[in-house]
Protein backbone atom coordinates (compact mmCIF):
# COMPACT_ATOMS: atom_id res chain seq x y z
CA UNK A 1 0.00 0.00 0.00
CA UNK A 2 1.31 3.43 -0.90
CA UNK A 3 2.21 5.66 2.00
CA UNK A 4 0.52 8.99 2.71
CA UNK A 5 2.77 12.01 3.05
CA UNK A 6 1.80 14.08 6.08
CA UNK A 7 2.99 17.52 7.12
CA UNK A 8 2.01 18.55 10.63
CA UNK A 9 3.08 20.33 13.81
CA UNK A 10 3.88 18.36 16.95
CA UNK A 11 4.68 20.20 20.19
CA UNK A 12 5.45 23.30 18.14
CA UNK A 13 7.87 21.58 15.78
CA UNK A 14 7.22 21.07 12.08
CA UNK A 15 7.19 17.33 11.34
CA UNK A 16 6.83 15.37 8.10
CA UNK A 17 6.27 11.65 7.78
CA UNK A 18 4.95 8.92 5.53
CA UNK A 19 2.31 6.60 6.98
CA UNK A 20 -0.05 3.91 5.80
CA UNK A 21 -3.66 5.02 5.18
CA UNK A 22 -4.93 2.68 7.92
CA UNK A 23 -2.24 3.55 10.47
CA UNK A 24 -3.34 5.30 13.66
CA UNK A 25 -1.86 8.55 14.90
CA UNK A 26 -0.82 6.61 18.02
CA UNK A 27 1.22 4.15 15.94
CA UNK A 28 2.79 7.03 13.99
CA UNK A 29 3.76 8.82 17.20
CA UNK A 30 5.15 5.71 18.86
CA UNK A 31 6.62 3.68 16.01
CA UNK A 32 7.61 6.28 13.42
CA UNK A 33 8.43 9.35 15.49
CA UNK A 34 9.73 7.75 18.69
CA UNK A 35 7.24 9.63 20.85
CA UNK A 36 6.38 6.74 23.17
CA UNK A 37 4.86 8.86 25.94
CA UNK A 38 1.36 8.14 24.64
CA UNK A 39 0.50 4.54 25.54
CA UNK A 40 -1.76 1.93 23.98
CA UNK A 41 -3.89 0.47 26.75
CA UNK A 42 -6.77 -0.75 24.63
CA UNK A 43 -6.69 0.49 21.03
CA UNK A 44 -10.43 1.12 21.15
CA UNK A 45 -10.70 4.55 22.77
CA UNK A 46 -11.80 3.18 26.14
CA UNK A 47 -8.80 3.87 28.38
CA UNK A 48 -7.43 7.30 27.43
CA UNK A 49 -3.78 6.28 27.88
CA UNK A 50 -3.06 7.55 24.36
CA UNK A 51 -4.66 10.98 24.90
CA UNK A 52 -3.24 13.86 22.84
CA UNK A 53 -4.59 17.27 21.93
CA UNK A 54 -5.31 17.94 18.26
CA UNK A 55 -6.15 21.58 17.50
CA UNK A 56 -7.31 22.23 21.08
CA UNK A 57 -9.43 19.09 21.13
CA UNK A 58 -8.70 16.16 23.44
CA UNK A 59 -8.65 12.90 21.47
CA UNK A 60 -7.61 9.29 21.83
CA UNK A 61 -4.78 9.04 19.31
CA UNK A 62 -5.66 5.36 18.76
CA UNK A 63 -8.93 6.54 17.17
CA UNK A 64 -7.31 9.12 14.86
CA UNK A 65 -5.54 8.19 11.65
CA UNK A 66 -1.99 9.35 11.12
CA UNK A 67 -3.10 10.82 7.81
CA UNK A 68 -5.65 13.01 9.61
CA UNK A 69 -2.84 14.94 11.33
CA UNK A 70 -2.15 16.83 8.10
CA UNK A 71 -1.98 20.55 8.84
CA UNK A 72 -2.92 20.16 12.50
CA UNK A 73 -1.38 21.30 15.76
CA UNK A 74 -0.71 18.30 17.99
CA UNK A 75 0.29 18.37 21.64
CA UNK A 76 1.70 15.27 23.34
CA UNK A 77 3.08 14.60 26.81
CA UNK A 78 6.61 15.15 25.48
CA UNK A 79 5.75 18.83 24.91
CA UNK A 80 4.14 19.53 28.27
CA UNK A 81 7.19 20.70 30.23
CA UNK A 82 9.14 23.76 29.13
CA UNK A 83 12.76 22.72 29.29
CA UNK A 84 13.55 22.06 32.94
CA UNK A 85 10.30 23.64 34.04
CA UNK A 86 7.60 21.07 34.70
CA UNK A 87 4.00 22.07 34.02
CA UNK A 88 2.14 22.69 37.32
CA UNK A 89 0.08 19.58 36.68
CA UNK A 90 3.23 17.47 36.32
CA UNK A 91 4.66 18.97 39.51
CA UNK A 92 1.44 18.38 41.46
CA UNK A 93 1.13 14.81 40.22
CA UNK A 94 4.59 14.19 41.69
CA UNK A 95 3.89 15.97 44.98
CA UNK A 96 0.55 14.21 45.54
CA UNK A 97 1.84 10.81 44.37
CA UNK A 98 -0.98 10.83 41.85
CA UNK A 99 0.70 7.96 40.05
CA UNK A 100 1.73 4.49 41.10
CA UNK A 101 2.69 2.50 38.02
CA UNK A 102 2.50 5.61 35.86
CA UNK A 103 1.26 4.04 32.62
CA UNK A 104 -1.93 6.13 32.61
CA UNK A 105 -0.14 9.30 33.75
CA UNK A 106 0.68 10.85 30.35
CA UNK A 107 -2.95 10.47 29.29
CA UNK A 108 -4.25 11.89 32.56
CA UNK A 109 -1.91 14.88 32.37
CA UNK A 110 -2.99 15.68 28.80
CA UNK A 111 -6.67 15.26 29.70
CA UNK A 112 -6.26 17.39 32.82
CA UNK A 113 -4.47 20.10 30.86
CA UNK A 114 -7.34 20.16 28.39
CA UNK A 115 -9.86 20.26 31.24
CA UNK A 116 -8.18 23.22 32.96
CA UNK A 117 -7.81 25.09 29.67
CA UNK A 118 -11.58 24.94 29.28
CA UNK A 119 -12.51 25.17 32.95
CA UNK A 120 -9.78 26.79 35.08
CA UNK A 121 -11.74 26.42 38.31
CA UNK A 122 -13.43 23.02 38.25
CA UNK A 123 -15.35 21.51 41.15
CA UNK A 124 -14.45 18.01 42.33
CA UNK A 125 -17.38 16.65 40.37
CA UNK A 126 -16.31 18.49 37.22
CA UNK A 127 -12.82 17.06 37.56
CA UNK A 128 -14.22 13.55 38.06
CA UNK A 129 -16.42 13.78 34.98
CA UNK A 130 -13.74 15.62 33.01
CA UNK A 131 -11.30 12.77 33.57
CA UNK A 132 -13.84 9.93 33.27
CA UNK A 133 -12.40 8.98 29.87
CA UNK A 134 -9.10 7.98 31.42
CA UNK A 135 -8.66 4.70 33.27
CA UNK A 136 -6.34 4.29 36.24
CA UNK A 137 -6.18 0.92 37.97
CA UNK A 138 -3.70 1.78 40.73
CA UNK A 139 -4.75 4.91 42.60
CA UNK A 140 -8.52 4.85 43.01
CA UNK A 141 -8.31 8.40 41.52
CA UNK A 142 -8.27 10.11 44.94
CA UNK A 143 -4.77 11.55 44.63
CA UNK A 144 -5.26 12.37 40.93
CA UNK A 145 -8.29 14.53 41.74
CA UNK A 146 -6.42 16.27 44.55
CA UNK A 147 -3.39 16.91 42.31
CA UNK A 148 -5.60 18.47 39.63
CA UNK A 149 -7.37 20.63 42.24
CA UNK A 150 -4.03 21.79 43.60
CA UNK A 151 -2.62 22.50 40.13
CA UNK A 152 -5.73 24.49 39.23
CA UNK A 153 -5.18 26.64 42.32
CA UNK A 154 -1.52 27.20 41.47
CA UNK A 155 -2.34 28.06 37.86
CA UNK A 156 -5.03 30.53 38.97
CA UNK A 157 -2.50 32.20 41.30
CA UNK A 158 0.01 32.32 38.47
CA UNK A 159 -2.40 33.93 36.04
CA UNK A 160 -3.39 36.72 38.46
Amino acid sequence: MAGVAVSTTINGDHVEYLCQPDETLLDVLRDRLGLTGAKEGCGTGDCGACSVIVDDRLVCSCLVLGAEAEGRQIETIEGMAHGDQLHPLQQKFLEHAALQCGICTPGFLIAAKDLLAKNPDPTEEEIRFGLAGNLCRCTGYDKIVRAVQDAANVMKEGSR
Binding site: R30, K39, E40, I77, L86, Q90, L94, T105
Partner: peptide, 21 residues
Protein backbone atom coordinates in the same frame (compact mmCIF):
# COMPACT_ATOMS: atom_id res chain seq x y z
CA UNK B 1 8.43 11.28 55.36
CA UNK B 2 6.87 11.80 51.94
CA UNK B 3 9.48 12.80 49.34
CA UNK B 4 9.01 12.69 45.55
CA UNK B 5 9.83 9.30 44.03
CA UNK B 6 13.10 8.91 42.10
CA UNK B 7 11.35 7.65 38.95
CA UNK B 8 8.71 10.37 39.09
CA UNK B 9 9.96 12.93 36.57
CA UNK B 10 10.41 10.26 33.89
CA UNK B 11 6.82 9.20 34.45
CA UNK B 12 5.22 12.64 34.21
CA UNK B 13 7.22 13.59 31.10
CA UNK B 14 6.54 10.41 29.10
CA UNK B 15 10.17 9.32 29.21
CA UNK B 16 9.74 6.24 31.38
CA UNK B 17 10.10 3.12 29.27
CA UNK B 18 7.46 0.43 29.72
CA UNK B 19 7.24 -2.97 28.04
CA UNK B 20 6.20 -1.72 24.62
CA UNK B 21 8.47 1.37 24.65
Amino acid sequence: TRPIRPDGVDKVTGRARYGAD
